[in-house]
Design a protein around this nucleic acid. Structure first.
Lengths: 151, 151
DNA sequence: TAAAATTAAATTGTATACAATCAATATACA
DNA sequence: TGTATATTGATTGTATACAATTTAATTTTA
């Protein structure tokens, strides 16, 4: 690749990711708006539906988000009646997030959303699945290299 | 895929994109910090190095960003002396963004960054290139479907 | 075991994102 | 021509992201 081409926006993997992530997120918005959830709140709920009673720390590791993002977001979910936050009695430094009945019930209203969104991409399921695996791999590799940089 | 699996975070293409995009962006931060640029400011500069003297509107289409994001960002780039913003004399509704000498000079300091970042992903170039193409395709498909929804 | 180091959240400050609205300008067309 | 419509940026308000710092609790260690 020539010196010039290397900086072309369309040759940047980072920009392809950045733009694509935002476009896909936009597809979720109309569905999530109906439920009063933002996209980040939605993925947070996905984790909680998988693993209830989880420390903020673990939630952050799962979502690649820190407390600066999660604390205000979780306060909003709590204000909406979907979760409860309480200190871990065994270790008061830790805050445990727990679903309310209402929070648990919301899962059934969300079940169809991923399919509806994927349909709009009009790509074969297999291709989407492959893409997802490649992204996981890349994310993991980067994450590993970040940890190894802590030496 | 079972009813349960469909909502698993790790099965969501959207989350794979969302997390991966943020991880890759983080790889740029140390390099961009040295130059006093944020990631969004960096991709904005990439467009300007390709196409100088561009309306805000076109810049937004290229970056998939609207004026709510671009206006304050461009004011910061102007304050940093990298660009000039001026109304188009031929159409006063439009604002033209133009590089300063300093803005143009910055390109040479950025040339090596993409390679340095990609190295850290330790993926074969060919694989990265394929991934980029798939993302472009997906982004375009979504974008098209958004336009067709305007009926 | 008391001081030092570590850990987990919360807080603070800066910079996006983006929907919704507004204001200025330009265009269409009756 | 004169007005309705459309276009372009700017503004406002809400919600992330994330670095850096602070606070409180726990663990390590001299």
């Amino acid at each position: 690749m020539s010196r010039n081409d290397r900086l072309r926006l369309d040759n940047q993997l980072c920009f392809a990711l950045y733009a694509c992530a935002r476009e896909v997120t936009k597809l979720y918005r109309p569905f999530l708006d109906e439920l009063g959830l933002t996209y980040t709140q939605y993925v947070t709920m996905l984790v909680l539906w998988e693993t209830d009673e989880i420390p903020v720390k673990t939630l952050g590791q799962r979502l690649h988000l820190d407390s600066g993002t999660l604390t205000p977001l979780l306060k909003k979910l709590q204000a909406a009646g979907l979760i409860i936050r309480e200190r871990n009695a065994a270790d008061e430094r830790s805050v445990i997030v727990r679903l309310t009945e209402q929070g648990r019930a919301l899962e059934s209203l969300v079940l169809e959303i991923p399919d509806k969104v994927l349909c709009q991409t009009s790509l074969p399921l297999e291709e989407l699945s492959l893409l997802r695996e490649q992204l996981h791999k890349l994310t993991e590799t980067i994450h590993q290299s970040e940890y190894s940089n802590l030496d």
